[in-house]
Design a protein around this nucleic acid. Sequence first.
RNA 1: GCGCUCGUAGCUCAAUGGAUAGAGCAUCGGCCUUCUAAGCCGAGGGUUCCGAGUUCGAGUCUCGGCGGGCGUACCA
Length: 541
Amino acid sequence: MNVSKVLTDLLHQALDDLKYPDTEITLESPPDPKMGDRSCTIALALAKQLKRAPRQIAEEIRDAIKTDGSIIERIEIAGAGYLNFFCSEEVWLQLLQSILSTGPDYGSSDTGKNEKRLFEFVSANPTGPMNIVSARAAALGDSMVRLQKKVGFSADSEFYVNDSGKQIRLLGESVQARARELQGETAEIPDGGYHGAYIKDLAKRALDESAANCLEVSAELTGRWAADKLREGQEATLEEYGVKFDRWFRESELYTDNSHQKTLERLKANGHIYEKDGALFFRTTEFGDDEDRVVITSDGRPTYFLPDIAYHLNKAERGYVRVFDLLGPDHHGHGKRMQAAMKAAGMPDDFLEIIIVQQVNLLRGGEPVKMSKRTGEMVTMKELLDEVGADAARQIFLSRKWSSHLDFDIESAKDRSEKSPVFYVQYAHARICSIFRKAGDRGDASLNDLEKLKAAEERNLMRSLSLFPDVVESAALYLAPHRLNTYLGDLATAFHHFYHECRVISEDEGLTRARLALCRAVQIALIEGLRLMGMTAPERM
RNA sequence: GCGCUCGUAGCUCAAUGGAUAGAGCAUCGGCCUUCUAAGCCGAGGGUUCCGAGUUCGAGUCUCGGCGGGCGUACCA
């Protein structure tokens, strides 16, 4: 059952009866529960079109709504013309029944109509360990995909592996240089090469696994080998974090079937390519870029841009209707150019959406964290997860919208005292589990005595539960997992109030069963909400 | 210089163009013999950076400033 949908349907019917234009209706949760269970601003929106006073319109809509009192107890008109709905007892009972019977599917919908969508995120270069920005992007992208699926999109996740080009050769040269050093020779890391201590580890492995062979093959080959090892490490770290990509798409795949050449031909045919100083330029300025960009260098090599365009067109060929790229703030120029490229290739305007995930400031006890000597990174994603745990990291990353800069304090992420809000939602779940353990045989949550749930805390809890589908829907459609996080905090607060005021296990058998049913419903919403954030729901804490 | 982005309580952050701008932390004061105190209750704390504009209504949209961050490669 979806309370908002029931009310929206009634509103549409009323608008139709009144011969008002059938505008989109969205319901809100009023700022104060005293104002009702849902509110609607449709009268305010219609006032301009109809050239009439909003309160008058609101009154007509109220009178036109058909209800025998089984759903709506009453409708109030407030303020400038808000329609405030107060639900009947009957609705709450139905709601609890439906949550218990649908279980984890509560909040699911078919809004997405199975539209194919692809989310590309992390896509860290396979030339070193991932950092904290990747951790943020991984948490966000993964949760977005989970939410998309929840509301009926056919959504996939993908990691693009830049396993070709100059950087791979440099990686190979760096590893070979360290390998030579290990064998007692003197060697230098090339200009622009990689200096982290992990290069030495790779050199050791290369020598162990292939004897001195790695020094005889080309730097490219060694680079590719090293990139593959690093990529495996990235995959392992991400899996530890609970993020499993549907596909790892290698840039090199594009070269084997000449996709980049075909893409170049396509752009040429559309007249967007010209030659200058021996290089091929893509006229991105026609699409709002500051200057035209090179796609083939004067010595004949494609820049990263061309295969990346080919990659995005490949996404379309695989049937994706909309694709989303999560990029770091240092790549926002790239996102713009890619959108220009998609336009030039004739893709619809809304095909590619760029999401710029803002940077993370890593702190420890309020002080900025210094550079790690070992890896050349601030702190690697793996080190971060090992220290604070996946659940805490995800909770923090999903507590803010992606467009805001984020301070991540390692100490407060680990804090388990009342000072830290990190484990607040999980704690509510653990408490529910504890109640069920205590209840033992009496744990058969029953629907027969639901009408006994009359306390304000109980009503508030049911009202909060009824908002779950609304929040899931908006978090999915607005690509805003942090809304789910905020909501789960509110739901947990409502539960903690209830827990404090209403003793679940008592002498009153009927009331006990009813309250156990309410606990079960909250548990279902908490588990599903945490799952959508990629977090676990521990039974004990 | 140009482009993108952010600016909300002392701090970290919320708030579909809607009602009295909300949480946590910090500060101050209460609650453990009871299903987990990782919890609950209460108090104080605001010119939403500044200035115009659009609107019935602006923290939110537009323009102009100011301040922070990030870009501005024949790197990826």
